[in-house]
Simulated scan of single mutants.
Amino acid sequence: MRTGLVLVTGASGFVGKWTVIELLRAGFDVRGSVRSEHKAEAVRAAVVAGLGHDALLRLSFAKVDLMHDRGWREAMIGVNAVAHVAAQILADEPKDMQVVIGPALEGTERVLRFAAAGGVKRIVLTSSIATVGYGHGHTRGARTYTEEHFTNLDAMQFTWAYCVGKTKAEKAAWAYARAEELALTTIHPGAILGPALDKDASISLQMVSGLLDGTTPAMPSNGFSVIDVRDVAAMHVAALQQPASAGQRYLATSDYVPFPEVGRILREAYPDRQITQKTVPDWIIKLLARFGGPTRQIINDIGNEKHFDRTKGEKLLGRAFISGQDAILATAESAIALDLLKPKRPR
């Protein structure tokens, strides 16, 4: 059954490829936004591997850039809905935060503006738990957040580019949706793990691959709420299939998993690998975060546990989320199968 044409931005990304596949599986036609033919070929290869060659008949591409207007008007022709998945994610905190904030904020505004101009009213936006669980004065112990919480950037001692960009972009999206009467849904993933489809995988997979190949010599003590990429993609499809999801935010988070627990899970599954048990003291992370770098991205989670209510997200999906352990193991399996592990350095 054909259910309309969906434009998927960032189609060649980790979440983008899975979203394209799940939309095609559900009967949608898909137009993926990419920046080059090389990226389009990667998406085609993933689709063929997952669904077979026939699915390519319902897949097309638009070569556009989030930071430029060129091509977006044509990209929206014939489109019934937009899944705005594209995001700029960096392992290290950039010196210039605009490298991340620009594509998040300006890119989101551009996509919504051209969607509205093209008569496209239905939008599903990939947001993040970064727009939910920060700036609430939570510094110690466990706390559970729901879709009612919204990150307060002004109350944060340490912000980071991704959090700022995503939060500003989501606020702008809701304001624009109200002004233009767009039917907007936002999906808020935690740390996205799960099986990679090719070597062009998300940096979030490094949380697992770095332990497997020994390039992570010690772990922080804090944890993170995990979500499997297959659940994130499925939630985008479910949102488009359920009109009642318009105007709603949905957390996409399964289990809260401390980094040392990730190490334990991997040691049990791969006893032949030398997976570190060392942790970095919290005070060192707090000190390093003042100078930027990757620790700046986790400093707000040191000393506390941020849990996110999965009830609403699982109701949208119609089933329980894939467990954190299964997502971690699926990540490891694909990292090994795709040869994503870095070779060990000689001693």
Rank of each mutant, 00 (worst) to 15 (best):
W160I: 09
M235Q: 13
E148P: 03
S202C: 01
D282M: 00
S323N: 02
A87K: 01
H53N: 15
A62L: 11
I284Y: 10
L211G: 05
T3P: 02
T151L: 10
T167K: 05
L184N: 01
G165N: 12
A75W: 05
G133L: 10
T131P: 11
E180F: 06
K278P: 04
M219G: 10
M76D: 08
G78W: 01
T295I: 11
D309L: 05
Q242N: 15
S202P: 02
A335P: 12
F61G: 07
A244W: 04
K63D: 00
V226A: 08
F158P: 07
A252H: 09
G194R: 05
M67G: 14
N80V: 01
D65N: 13
G141T: 14
F28A: 04
V85I: 13
F308K: 03
S36W: 00
E106L: 13
E37C: 08
V47S: 06
Q98E: 15
T276C: 05
R140F: 13
K121N: 06
N304I: 00
N300F: 06
A11Q: 08
G4A: 08
N300L: 07
V132F: 06
A175S: 04
E180R: 02
G102R: 14
R122M: 02
F224V: 06
V111C: 08
A320R: 14
D29V: 06
I285V: 06
A179L: 03
R25L: 13
L211N: 01
V43K: 01
G52V: 12
E74H: 14
M97H: 14
I336C: 07
Q88R: 10
Y145K: 13
R230L: 12
Y256F: 14
N152C: 10
T253P: 06
S334H: 05
G13F: 04
T276W: 11
